[in-house]
Simulated scan of single mutants.
Amino acid sequence: RMNTPTLETDRLILRRFSEEDINALFLILKNEEVNTFLPWYPVKSIDETRKFYKERYADKYQQPQAYAYAICLKSDNFPIGYIKVDMEEHHDFGYGLRKEFWHQGIVSEAGKAVVAQVKRDGLPYITATHDRNNPRSGNVMRNVGMKYQYSFEEQWQPKNIVVIFRMYQLNLDGQEDRIYKKYWDTSAVHFVEPNL
């Protein structure tokens, strides 16, 4: 199987980031509001962006299997966001999008394509977490078929703040009752929120 195979949807091309995308990546990563709920600080420079690109993309593309995509509009193939599924045990599904493109269903459209691909490739499940103060992110998770499982508290790094996360999961292999419990087990504060 190919690492990060290119995907197309009605409006989007999902492809690998390349060296040529550093300026586009900088636009995505430098925005304060976009980065409020992400586990890093906004980047301040092209140099910082290059480092981010190397660690999060170039190095991943050396692995035998990875899903680390640039979200591009078909009209110009210019990255306006990113979407990924990690190959670690949690198979974490994550995404970010430039603010100008919010509220157009872009991440849900990209997410459905990525989920279909990892399912084809035999991933047994994916998980995702969002800050309880960022419920819109949960909408994306639900839109791609994920279900809420539980909430847990974490002393979140590198920002070193206490965050309550909601954990969503989608089982792709028919084992509907599997729940990824690692966050539950490692957090002293965990609970199931009713009505979610």
Rank of each mutant, 00 (worst) to 15 (best):
H190C: 03
L12C: 00
G174T: 04
F17L: 11
R120V: 15
D131I: 10
N160I: 09
N139S: 10
E193M: 04
L196Y: 07
Y180W: 09
K74A: 00
G138L: 00
Q157D: 08
D177M: 02
E153D: 04
E33I: 13
Y82I: 05
P194Q: 08
M167G: 11
K74N: 03
R15P: 01
L27M: 10
R132Y: 08
R1G: 15
Y57T: 08
E32A: 09
N134C: 09
W184V: 12
R16P: 01
N160K: 12
Y67R: 09
Y148L: 01
F37V: 06
R16L: 00
H90D: 14
A188L: 08
R98L: 04
R98V: 04
E153M: 04
E55A: 11
Q175V: 03
P79G: 11
E100T: 06
Q157Y: 10
Y57Q: 07
F165S: 12
K112E: 13
K181L: 05
D92L: 05
I80N: 10
K112F: 02
M141G: 09
P5F: 11
L38H: 10
V118Q: 03
W102C: 01
Y148R: 00
L170K: 15
P124G: 03
L170E: 06
W156K: 06
R50P: 02
K84C: 12
H130E: 07
A188N: 07
Q63W: 07
Q175F: 04
R1P: 11
R50M: 05
I13T: 10
P42T: 15
L27C: 05
R1N: 14
Q149H: 13
M167C: 14
G81K: 07
I46T: 14
V115D: 02
L196A: 09
D177K: 09
D47G: 07
Y168G: 06
L97P: 00
F152N: 11
A68I: 05
E55R: 12
E19Y: 13
G94L: 01
T129I: 14
T129A: 15
P158Q: 14
Y148M: 00
N35P: 02
L25V: 04
D10I: 03
T49D: 07
Q62A: 10
I179L: 01
D173V: 02
I179Q: 06
V162T: 15
P158G: 11
A113N: 11
Q149M: 07
E19N: 11
D185I: 07
N31R: 06
M87C: 15
Y69G: 03
Q104C: 07
N35G: 09
N171S: 06
E154I: 11
K147V: 05
G96F: 02
V118Y: 08
G174W: 05
